[in-house]
Design a protein around this nucleic acid. Structure first.
Lengths: 228, 228
DNA sequence: ACAAATTTTTAGATTTGTCTAAATTTTAAT
DNA sequence: ATTAAAATTTAGACAAATCTAAAAATTTGT
């Protein structure tokens, strides 16, 4: 019978996945997330989400009122950041230490993120040199839950002639990442917008020393940081 | 509808734990293992073991006849070796790359061994330089399931005056491993049996350049390889 | 060999996470 | 402001993995 017994309770894999999904859908703000949206994202049914919402609310991880959707509590946000930290550190490990390519890491990191050992993550972070970004350019939360929010914008929104550095991808699907590999576009590359085609909104760009055409769809999934 | 559809079926964490336990209890031989023994080892009830025995038999992993105990099939042995390989490789990783001490690795490796990715394990093996033994001196099965069985013996069974190298521990409990650390006994150390005490079977030994007394209990949990 | 002790299995219940189908609530449209 | 549409919840079911208590089989002791 301990006073703060519920602080470090066991979280199941499923609970952790729900928390992560809610966070990614924007549930870190006060705006509640719809049951349907969560169900769709998690490839499950709304009724299952309702059940889990109750359980997570009981555990103090989310705010939940019937028919009103869920949003993360402060504790829920902390929990989400801890899971995301683990996921992204493992992604860095896979790419940096085990030569995975950036389109191969997600599935494995989805499993590794649920391993429970604080020491493991601290040491992994140390081994990797406390990386700030994962292989897709997404920021890695620090141990105390701080985010490096980088001021970045979509390549599709860059003004003509402006120059920037590629710092991330919005779409992390295998097909998109493989496309980038094939076209030799990688994080860290310098990109300049040479021309914009009004008709289909495609861009003519220069990546390092190469010139190429990319569709609007591509440009709107690449994050660029303006030259600072 | 594929011909060999049941070869790579999904194994749950629980199934994997049963297979591993059966293997460790000696189920790799033809000798069947008793339901009770498995239940005790796994901290569960015999009735649960019966249920699982049926399921594993259905999947072709064990031989099972009512009231007769279970033994692994060839496929079951292959599966067990694959899990043990993963467990031990992760243990090496934790010690070599993340500075874990040998008494801290077991719990985390128990989780990591269930991560599913062939590439992950292949690459990890490569990163670690294809180690043959884990931090406790236990052999790591190769990808195709081969075991390096080292000719070793318990320190307690070494003849007087004989010299050997410490190559493993039988008991891997935290208390035992911490005791060894405290007494500066590590794998690779050269050990000579100087005297044997008839009364309590304790040993007076030399470890590298230090002399010390150890109880029979200690000596019967340390593996030594005779100087070759 | 036969009764007693032990081991193992069965039967039925529980928990977690999921589902379907029906009912309810909210939102949107006219 | 009603009603139709959409979203959400409830109720009841299921599979996996476990448990308890009782029944059945095996082993052991004399």
């Amino acid at each position: 019978m301990q006073l703060w017994g519920n602080i470090k309770e066991h979280m199941t894999r499923s609970e952790e996945n729900y928390i992560k999904t809610i966070f990614h859908l924007g549930g870190n703000t006060a705006t509640p997330i719809a049951t349907n949206a969560i169900a769709e994202q998690m490839q499950t049914k709304p009724s299952s989400v309702t059940d889990m919402a109750r359980k997570l609310a009981d555990k103090g991880l989310v705010h939940y009122k019937k028919y009103q959707g869920v949003s993360l509590t402060d504790f829920g946000i902390k929990t989400a950041l801890s899971i995301i930290r683990k996921h992204r550190l493992w992604e860095v490990f896979l790419v940096e230490k085990l030569d995975f390519s950036w389109d191969e890491v997600h599935e494995v990191a989805e499993q590794l993120e649920h391993i429970k050992s604080e020491k493991l993550i601290d040491k992994l972070d140390e081994l990797l040199g406390h990386p700030k970004y994962d292989p897709h350019g997404d920021p890695i939360p620090t141990k105390d839950g701080n985010f490096m929010v980088r001021d970045k914008q979509l390549l599709s929104e860059m003004p003509l002639k402006s120059i920037g550095v590629c710092v991330g991808v919005k779409d992390t699907s295998t097909t998109f990442l493989k496309f980038l590999d094939k076209n030799n576009i990688a994080l860290g590359n310098t990109i300049q917008v040479l021309e914009k085609e009004d008709f289909d909104m495609s861009l003519y760009i220069q990546v390092e020393d190469r010139k190429l055409n990319i569709s609007h769809q591509i440009a709107s999934n690449l994050y660029v940081k303006k030259n600072d």
